[in-house]
Design a binder for these strands. Structure first.
Lengths: 209, 209
DNA sequence: GTTCGATGTATCGAGACGATACATCGACGG
DNA sequence: CCGTCGATGTATCGTCTCGATACATCGAAC
């Protein structure tokens, strides 16, 4: 999951780990943050896989009193995405299977980089996510109906609030899907409207008919 | 976190790991489930600490072709809470510090066992949680206001939905707090109403005055 | 009588987390 | 001129959780 997020951010511009973490927290909605204990190992993996390069030959060497005169040198490492990394990113961003939406966290990251995702893939992911969450909702509803008598007030409130959250997510997804359909419907009659979304990376499905 | 949940369930009746997992999923609201990879190690820890006992002398011994004739014996393990376990549970359930509400998951578990928690602790936890979530909300609001121009439609929607969720949680918590206050206010004029909540485990703060 | 799904215990490797250590930097005040 | 404070910055450690998986038993359905 981190892999996608990091590549996505580096896709825009090279960055330090520190900056990466801040942007990540921002993209993830401020709730989901990311710890260094996850970030640096992830960067190491990406580096080992050749998806990113660093501007320092070996960031590990602590320059052991050999060249202390060098002012600028103090371990800062800028990570830059490679061609392979970009390829990998587009590969990840084009996956439309259950792995893309079954987990809420990953889905969030996917959504955050939707402007790099083809329109048909976007639609399939949104609909998959909706199915998943709808099933959650039904399970929750059933469980609540079955046990509502035996539950004390607090557990009941907890379940009720959880159910409402899931319900809201379903409605939210429905809105997003509607927007997608509307957009792709009026694709040629009207220029795109909001934000800085890329000109859709092609692969747009033919308008219904 | 698991520790509290497991002890809380075993507090009601002894159980198998399997059953424990199902009940856990139910209590946790159906969204947050728990995997065996967490459950069994947790049980092992609790067993090592003396908080639970098993009905099998050593569940590890696979009876290696020694006594295969024994029909009933097939590794089922029933876990029962001990006196130390109950003590530990009440200790955990009485903590009112930030650790009780800063993490949403743990807070959910705490809420699920609120009927074992003293009224004043309940109130402090609810208010602590509200503060935490309110701060999250403000951070989110500020971040959204600061960056709303630069965000594409999808990221914007993501943030908006996240903010709304947090906002809803704040309102929900406010309702719960109101109920707590109302209840403790009319404590002697009216019998308790809903669910099977235990008669409050004492430690009720004296009515305001 | 056998195949199937629920029940049931258990471990493995991958990876995420919080805490923490360490180092540099600019700014602020004594 | 010095100290220290908070932001920036890299990195690791131990602990925990997860998903996947293996294995075994059981009742019922076919």
């Amino acid at each position: 999951m981190l892999e996608l997020a990091i590549l996505g951010l580096l896709h825009q511009s090279p960055m330090h780990g520190y900056e990466l973490r801040k942007q990540l927290a921002q993209v993830l909605g401020g709730l989901r943050s990311i710890s260094y204990g996850s970030l640096y190992p992830a960067l190491k993996r990406l580096h080992a896989a050749g998806y990113v390069v660093t501007d320092e030959p070996d960031p590990r060497a602590p320059l052991p009193a050999d060249a202390p005169a060098l002012t600028g040198r103090r371990g800062k490492v800028v990570y830059t995405i490679t061609a392979e990394g970009k390829e990998r990113f587009h590969e990840l961003v084009s996956q439309a299977g259950p792995e893309a939406y079954d987990d809420g966290g990953l889905f969030g990251v996917r959504l955050a980089f939707f402007r790099h995702t083809a329109a048909d893939v976007r639609l399939r992911i949104l609909e998959g996510r909706r199915r998943t969450v709808e099933q959650q909702r039904e399970g929750l509803r059933a469980s609540l109906a079955r046990t509502r008598e035996r539950l004390d007030r607090y557990t009941l409130e907890l379940q009720r609030h959880g159910l409402e959250s899931v319900d809201r997510e379903v409605r939210w997804l429905a809105e997003l899907i509607d927007q997608e359909l509307t957009d792709s419907g009026q694709r040629r009659t009207d220029g795109p409207s909001s934000g800085d979304a890329d000109p859709p990376p092609a692969t747009t499905p033919p308008p219904p008919g």
